[in-house]
Structure formats: structure tokens, C-alpha cells
Amino acid sequence: MAAGAVLVWRRGDELGRALDQVSLTRLEVAGALAVAGTILIQLVWSALLRGLGAEPARRDAASVFFVSQLGKYVPGSVWPVVAQMQFGVRWRVPRAVMLAANVLLLGMVTASGLAVGAVLLPWSSPDGLRRYWWLLLLLLPLAAGLHPRTVPAVLDRLLRRLGRDPLPVRPGLGSLAASAGWALLAWLVLGLHVAVLAGAFGHVGVRELAAFAGGMGLAWAAGLAFIPAPAGAGVRDAVLVLTLSPMTGTTGALTVALASRALLLVADVLLAAVGALARPVGRVGPVSPS
């Protein structure tokens, strides 16, 4: 993070000139795509929650998710989980189920992000395979880790270590497939979000779009893996800059990464405000409290 701050400081004048190249229209379109991508991440969580037997009203679930996500900007990355566990009580959903939904969300977003990077980045440029060949090695363990038999076993073991009973309902293939589908769509939309910004610095074709989607997935996964950083600050941006630099240049990549970070923050705040106004009140869920 410190190295990133120094880089931004050293290139301050260049960044200012580069940012002038990004039109207001591009920022508006990229902002709309940032909102859409964030909504798709919420749908990943909702699919997992339903797979665990909890069925809050869709509006209530969205409201709780978006409000709780502001906690990810506090160091530690546990505050969204704590907030959602408290809302689970309102829905009569056991805290263990809410915890499991969040563990699954982190696993699904991280694994799908790595998978998208592994599938797209090696073929996104003439030297992509040479630069990203190591990502291909992750595909087999990722597939094994997301298998419907693996996920419940890992969750039950985690709950036992926390002194809690195993899950009353285990997520099935349908809910895992639905959440994976939403996650893959999220990476495509967020890749388009980056592509709109990067278009100010050069041509964006199919190869570039593949690189942006794969880079965003890989960057997001790296940010989630580094728990101490609020919302992956520094880590996610650094990975995105490294991915974009061959196509946009270092200054352009840094501009896109910083603009993307700002727009995603605005998207989180806007959706949280809408969620707070919705004031979730639903109390449903067939799972009995623990």
C-alpha cells in the first residue's frame, strides 16, 4: 500500500493529465456498470443463503447485504459478517447459517475470480500464456474445492471448531451453480466497467475485454485473500495495474485502477443508502434458530 501511495505521488501530474482524458460520459457508464456488478455480487450471496435453507424476502436480503458491505472498508473484513449475523436473528436464521453463507460467498467470489483470471488471462495477449501460465495450475484445485461434497464438509468442520452444530441444511448443486453463474456474470460486467475506463487510453477489442475481465477477477480475489486490507485496498489495485499496464501503459493503468476504486466505493454507498431506506423487516426462514 505504501509503495502504491508513493507511485501515485510521483506520477501525480501525469495522473491528472490522464484523468482529463476520461470523459464524464465514460465515468457515468462505468459507474452504472459498477452498480450492476455490485448487485450481481449480492445475488451470489442470496443464492447461497437460499441454498442453506434461509429465505428472507428478496428486498430485505438486498437491503441487509448492501448496508452491511460498508463494513468492509473497516480493517479486518469481518464487520459485514457480524452485521449479517445480527440481521439473521431478525429473520430467525441461525448465526451459524449466516456465517456459512459469508464463508461460501468469500470462497465463491475468490474461486470464481481466480478461475476467470486463469481461463482468460493466458489467452488475452500474444505473451499472455508466458506471463500467466501459473494460473492454469489453479483450475483443478478450484474445481475440487467448489465441488458440492467438498463445501459442506469444510463448513461442518469449521463449525465444529467454533463449537457449533453442523449445518441443518447443506447447500446443493443447484444453489452452488446459481451462485457461480451470478459470480461469472459479475466478472463480465466488472470487466466491461474497466473496459469503458480503459477505452480512453487505447483500443478495446475482444482480447482486451478478456484481459480486463480476467484481471478484475484476479485482482478482486487477491484483495479478498489479503484480509487486513479494507476492501482489498492497495492489493486489488496493484494487481489490476499490473494486468492493465501492457495495454494502457502504467499511467493509464493507474488512472483506471483509481477511477474504478472510486466508482465502486460510490456504488457501495449509493446501494447502502437505498438499502437503509428500504428498512428490512422480513422474518422468514424455515431454519430453526440455534
Score class of each variant (00 low, 15 high):
V64K: 06
G223P: 00
L43E: 11
R92N: 13
A253L: 07
T251I: 13
I41V: 15
L224G: 00
G113R: 02
P141G: 08
D127R: 11
R11M: 10
R131T: 15
P75C: 02
A143N: 07
A18H: 07
L265Q: 03
T150G: 04
A183K: 06
Q42C: 11
S288P: 00
L264S: 13
T38Y: 11
G172S: 11
R58V: 15
A30H: 04
P166G: 07
V89N: 01
L106P: 00
G215T: 12
A200S: 12
A221R: 03
V274A: 13
A219E: 08
A62Y: 06
G249P: 01
L155F: 10
A143I: 14
P94D: 07
G215V: 11
F66L: 09
L129E: 12
L49F: 04
L135S: 04
A83V: 12
S179H: 02
S77R: 10
D165C: 07
V35L: 14
V281N: 09
A153I: 08
V8W: 10
A115F: 14
A257H: 05
V74M: 04
G71L: 09
A267T: 08
G128L: 10
L138C: 10
S68W: 06
T255K: 03
A2G: 01
H193D: 01
A101E: 10
S290F: 01
P166K: 02
L114P: 04
L138A: 15
L159V: 05
L224D: 03
L120Q: 01
S290N: 04
L192E: 04
L7H: 08
V256A: 03
P246D: 08
D13S: 13
S77Q: 13
D127P: 00
R283T: 11
L43A: 11
E208W: 05
L99G: 13
L27W: 07
L271Q: 01
G37C: 10
L24D: 02
R236V: 02
W9A: 14
W45D: 05
G181W: 06
P152L: 01
L105N: 09
Y132P: 00
S125V: 10
G249E: 09
V281P: 00
D20Y: 01
V196S: 10
L190P: 00
E14S: 13
E28W: 12
G53I: 06
T250L: 15
L265T: 14
Q21R: 15
A273K: 06
R160H: 12
A5E: 08
A144E: 07
